[in-house]
Design a protein around this nucleic acid. Structure first.
Lengths: 214, 214
DNA sequence: CCACATCCCTACCAATCGGTACACAAGGGA
DNA sequence: TCCCTTGTGTACCGATTGGTAGGGATGTGG
């Protein structure tokens, strides 16, 4: 039973290259020529290894969420609701302007990709976002129940507020905004955060958890 | 001296139709076929009347800014800085979800259009945004000098904050967010607004200026 | 009625899009 | 060594992209 010719490229490396291209140019803006050139392979190899352009994007999106936006899930584990928001927004300012990869957010860019033929991509991104927003809301509800947020705080509104700020920051970053500018936005947004009257949680030294490099 | 055959369509109406198409599908996502079908004319007529696709987009963008986002310039005339922000954000929530036209923001969508060949479009949009942001900052500096904002307020940061919120709301709207949701975001953002210690300006009845229809 | 200027329309252009057919190269099992 | 399986590479597919040439239609000024 023959095994067949071994693959001449590393799928992980190629997927990383594809992720970078999608990140820079968006789903529809990235042509197969762009992708194959960056990945160092040719079309049939791409189709054999990844299915088609849409599946390739999905795999790249998975990798993006798990490797690049992991700070967002980890932020939910911060001890207080304020620190959750703080780590989320400052982490976003850092990630969105990290010089080690393209600026902006693959998902935000992808959610605005134009054509209606890529509706399924938009749906997947929308699903990811609403899933995360639900997790964040759950975390904030817990915080409210624990007295970490005022009893009249609205976790749903706060979660949507944070999400919206992130999306705005992603647009800013895609337009070339500097890291300091995004940090300023994050800090301003944090001033809208409700404090529990009993135990006030202000800006914390927890920010150290947000590294400056990648 | 002959005058020539009169144009069989109204350029204003056609431009409105083109604006709607660009608004829904983005600059690159709107094909000439989409545009000509919506405008009720054929390609050569389009090119004769508007130049080419890029010039058509610029004209549509002009109209968009002057007719649809006029609330943003008018908001600068509000009596207090807080009311400026309030009218801006609540006006945005209304405009971005107005059922009389496509949802979201043509400029935000356009600024994320993928290809590098449409760099000049992105540049124009970036210019419009930074111009507006400068106006807003100027208005806030005046407010600070008048004591309407605390002396340590940072008009530049506040202006960028407002811009970022708007962009995030535009992404939300493009994803189908409801008007109530965007209003909630606006109200949360307004809680970040600094109040002058001398004369406190809170939420005002000035919101009445924001109509509910178009 | 004629001439001229302008517009409309069909049909086309080269370039690019995502995707694939097919011949060849490269390896392991018998 | 021969075969079989799998990946690689070239060259292509039909469809669509933005943009245009050129003839016929339609109006005004003489």
């Amino acid at each position: 039973m023959a095994i067949g010719r071994p693959r001449a490229f590393c799928t992980e490396t190629a997927l990383n290259a594809a992720l970078n291209v999608f990140w820079r140019k968006g789903y529809e803006g990235a042509s197969l020529t762009d992708l194959t050139e960056a990945m160092g392979i040719n079309r049939p190899s791409l189709y054999a290894a990844f299915g088609n352009k849409e599946e390739l994007f999905r795999k790249a999106l998975d990798r993006y969420v798990n490797e690049k936006v992991s700070f967002a899930s980890e932020a939910l584990e911060a001890p207080t609701a304020y620190q959750v928001a703080e780590r989320l927004l400052l982490g976003a300012a850092e990630m969105l302007t990290n010089p080690d990869h393209p600026v902006g957010c693959l998902a935000v860019r992808g959610s605005l990709t134009c054509g209606e033929e890529s509706q399924s991509i938009r749906n997947e991104i929308a699903h990811l976002r609403s899933e995360y927003e639900a997790n964040l809301r759950g975390r904030l509800e817990r915080a409210r129940d624990e007295g970490d947020l005022p009893a009249d705080a609205q976790p749903e509104h706060l979660a949507r507020f944070i999400t919206t700020i992130f999306q705005g920051m992603a647009v800013q970053a895609a337009g070339g905004a500097a890291r300091e500018a995004l940090r300023g936005v994050a800090e301003t947004a944090l001033r809208a955060w409700p404090r529990a009257p009993a135990a006030r949680h202000g800006p914390s030294a927890d920010t150290l958890a947000v590294s400056d490099g990648d």
